[in-house]
Amino acid sequence: MSAVNDEQGPKASAPGPFTCTFWGVRGSIAAPGAETVRYGGNTPCLEVICGTQRLILDAGSGIRVLGHHMEPLTGPLEVDIFLTHTHLDHIVGLPFFSPAFSAENRLKIYAGHLAPERNVEDVLNTMMADPLFPIPVNALHSNKTFIDFHAGETLQPYPGITVRTAPLNHPNKATGYRIDYAGRSLCYITDTEHFPGRLDDNILGLIAGADYVIYDAMFTDAEYTAKTGWGHSTWQEGVKLMEASGAKTLVLFHHAPRRTDEQLDAIAAEAAARRPGTIIAREDMILTL
């Protein structure tokens, strides 16, 4: 119950928590094993809590573990999944997301990179079809809604929560997201390739002044020379974007599947020396805004 002041009337209740939990941080393909145990081997999935609402960014293999953690929650659950794109590493976990099988739950799946040529429901049906997969999308018995939009639109999934979007430079296209809630902002910019010699205006506009920017750092500058056209960026480019945009904390993400824990430790040290406060995403890490 909100506090009441007899002279001034009801006070507005304080906003609820704004957190981001990492359930998958690896890119391209899951990479379990002894060399990736500290940072994690699951592919992209983030859980963002804005007050009482849960937004999920991408449905890589990490969403399976998230689903297990959600099972004790009392239903019905309302879950919104925002996909950056539908390459396999970003959707492969969806058929294993246990809340999607409960008919009492409501599931909304957003994608901004497919329209007008295709739609997200069609793509997911293609993935979950014989002979590639044994059950179809309609075996996920939750109340499903598929929402296609154009990257660049601003979405308002719930009162007080604004999701801005922008197109990213990636094969078959991708979408970047910025979530604004309670005066704070979280940006999710993954699977994008920078433009040598200039900064990406779409990204600069999206991340301007943001509190956290989660950025595609699959390669280093030294590696990128042999990876041009693969659709990914470097941590050094992330630093440049942060400095030009006035954003605050850089979070390096989408780790290469062959990148070991020791190699990520070395990148963490180098990136923090270049831009103090920079951190590297790892599974189970929680950002509190």
Rank of each mutant, 00 (worst) to 15 (best):
S2H: 15
S2T: 15
A3S: 08
V4T: 14
V4Y: 12
Q8P: 03
S13A: 14
P17V: 06
C20K: 09
F22G: 02
S28G: 05
I29F: 15
P32H: 10
G33K: 09
A34T: 13
T36C: 07
Y39G: 03
C45V: 07
C45G: 12
L46N: 12
R54M: 04
R54E: 04
R64W: 10
R64N: 13
G67D: 02
E71G: 00
P72H: 07
T74D: 05
G75F: 05
G75H: 04
P76W: 10
L77S: 01
T84W: 02
T86P: 00
T86R: 04
D89H: 15
H90F: 11
I91L: 09
P95F: 04
F97A: 12
A103K: 14
R106M: 03
L107M: 10
I109T: 05
I109V: 12
G112S: 05
P116R: 00
P116D: 00
D122E: 14
M127D: 10
D130R: 09
F133A: 08
P134W: 10
P134I: 08
I135H: 15
N138L: 07
T145E: 11
I147H: 00
G152F: 05
E153M: 04
E153Q: 06
P157E: 02
P159Q: 08
G160Y: 01
R164I: 00
A166S: 11
P167K: 03
L168D: 02
P171I: 05
N172L: 04
K173I: 01
A174N: 11
Y181A: 03
T190F: 15
T192W: 02
I203G: 03
G205A: 02
I207L: 05
A208W: 09
A208H: 14
A210S: 06
V213R: 12
M218V: 14
A222D: 14
T225M: 13
G229L: 10
W230V: 11
Q236V: 05
L241Q: 12
A247H: 05
R258A: 15
R258T: 12
R259L: 11
D265F: 03
A273M: 09
P276E: 01
G277F: 14
I279N: 06
M285L: 12
